[in-house]
Computed example of a mutant assay.
Amino acid sequence: MITNVARGVQAFTSNAFLVEGDRTVLVDTGANFDAEPRIRERDADLDAVILTHTHPDHVGNLEAVKEAFGVEAWGFDTGQPGVDHAIADGETVRIGGDSYTALHTPGHKDDHLCFHSSGAGVLFAGDLVFQNGSFGRTDLEEGDRGKLIESIDRVRERVDEHLAEMHTGHGPSVTTNPYHDIELAGRAARMG
């Protein structure tokens, strides 16, 4: 079960996906809202936080969530505040009841990760790609359009038309042909 606990929040935040299962994980924490009661109302026993990247809108609630649930955070770079454990490129991580492969996907931010489970048909895309072929900003510090295009290509080559769900850092999740949205993002990023 995947629930966006940031759904309906009017403040500037990223999505924050609670993935329930034998290892209940919050993928990104969002910012500028109280995440704790939204997690507790799911009756979820949170085991860990996994971060797609450490922009403030994705980690604003990190310390509060870690303290409230007594959990630690995993991300690409333990040099970033709040990241307790590193996830290496290509490493397998357990999210909910499925195994996901971590893909280092810089271009929006150097520590950006996507998480793909071929078994579940799910991709957590962070701010790499969004619905309708939108893609992550490259005008912020550490942004790099060339790297972003390479990262989109890498994800597109990793997933296939059987991808059922793409959960993005902002906006709605894509549950109808998300592979097409990834292809569109690759083309759009090359045109920009």
Rank of each mutant, 00 (worst) to 15 (best):
A189I: 00
D111N: 14
E41F: 04
G21E: 08
Y179K: 09
A125H: 11
A185V: 02
L51E: 01
S118A: 15
L46D: 05
A189P: 14
V25A: 13
M166V: 07
T29F: 01
R23D: 04
L18P: 08
L163D: 09
D77I: 01
D98Y: 13
F12P: 03
G30T: 06
G21K: 07
V159H: 07
R137I: 01
K109Y: 12
R145K: 14
A44T: 13
E142K: 12
F76H: 12
H116D: 10
R145L: 15
T175Q: 11
G169K: 02
R94H: 13
L51M: 09
T3K: 10
G126R: 08
E41K: 12
L140S: 08
V5D: 02
H162I: 00
K66M: 06
E183A: 14
R40Q: 13
S173H: 05
A16H: 07
N132G: 08
S118L: 14
H116Y: 15
D84Q: 10
N15V: 09
K147N: 03
T3C: 01
T138R: 01
G136D: 02
N61R: 00
F115M: 00
E20K: 15
C114Q: 06
F69Q: 07
L163G: 11
N32C: 12
R40N: 07
T138W: 07
G143T: 08
H170E: 12
V83A: 14
A189G: 04
F69K: 08
G121Y: 13
A73I: 08
R40W: 07
D45R: 13
T101E: 13
R154K: 11
T92K: 09
M1E: 02
I39Y: 09
A164H: 05
N132K: 11
E183G: 15
D47Y: 02
V5G: 04
I152Y: 05
L128P: 02
S118Q: 11
R40A: 15
G171H: 04
H55N: 09
P172F: 04
R156T: 03
A88V: 02
P178N: 08
E150A: 15
T101L: 09
I2R: 10
F124S: 06
D84I: 10
S134R: 12
R187N: 07
I2S: 00
V25P: 08
G30F: 04
L184D: 01
G8E: 05
V27F: 02
A6T: 11
P37Q: 10
V49E: 09
T176S: 11
G119H: 09
R158Y: 13
Q80E: 12
I50L: 15
M191F: 00
G171K: 03
R137N: 11
N15F: 01
D34Q: 10
A64D: 15
G192I: 02
L128I: 06
A73E: 04
A102W: 10
L62G: 04
S14W: 01
H55A: 11
T29C: 12
S117F: 09
E67Y: 00
V25I: 15
